[in-house]
Amino acid sequence: MRWFLSLLSGVLFGAGLALSGMMNPARVRGFLDIFGDWDPTLAFVMGGAVIVMAIAWAIQRRITSPATDAKFHLPGTRDLDPRLIGGSALFGIGWGLAGLCPGPAIASLATSLVPAAIFVAAMLAGMLLFRLTEQREGF
């Protein structure tokens, strides 16, 4: 049952990305082009996501455990530190240059294999590089 709900969630997320146009790098770059031909579509997608997430958090507070696990595994809060700020900046720069972030990139493997595969390969290489340096530096 758990694998089925995970698969269903992934398919629903991918369908939402496709339907909203967020798998299209030109749409993302259009949103970031505030002094040119600005495309506000991404703002509406983000606003919709915030509303859905606010409802989900409100429901989660009233539930003692999720349907497929004994307890919720929620992230804790963290202070702003140089790693968080640097990682956020690096993510934003990559997102602006490529027009993709991890979720849409993986979903794009189904529609535009070669460009998405190049992005996903670079993303995985960056994750591996981080893991290697994190172990060495003791972050």
Rank of each mutant, 00 (worst) to 15 (best):
R62G: 01
L97E: 03
G86I: 08
G99D: 04
W95S: 11
P75G: 01
P102G: 13
P82R: 13
F4H: 08
P25A: 00
L97N: 03
I118H: 06
A15L: 10
G48A: 13
K71R: 13
T133R: 10
A107V: 15
S88Q: 08
G21T: 05
F44M: 12
S88C: 10
P40Y: 09
L74C: 11
F130C: 13
I118Q: 00
A125K: 08
V52A: 15
L7E: 06
L19D: 03
L84Q: 11
G96T: 07
G21C: 07
A56E: 10
G10D: 11
G96E: 10
G99S: 02
G94Q: 14
K71E: 13
G36N: 09
L128W: 02
A105H: 04
I59W: 08
A116N: 09
S6N: 11
L12H: 06
I51V: 15
M46D: 01
R78W: 00
G47R: 07
P104N: 13
R83S: 04
A49D: 03
E134R: 13
T64D: 14
S20G: 11
V11W: 12
C101I: 06
S6A: 13
I106F: 10
P66C: 14
E134L: 00
A67L: 15
G21I: 07
P75N: 09
G30W: 05
E134T: 02
A15H: 06
A43W: 07
V114H: 06
C101L: 12
D37L: 03
A49M: 13
L132F: 00
T77V: 06
F13G: 04
R61G: 11
I51N: 03
W57C: 12
G138C: 01
W57Y: 12
F13T: 13
L124I: 15
S20K: 03
A89S: 04
S20N: 08
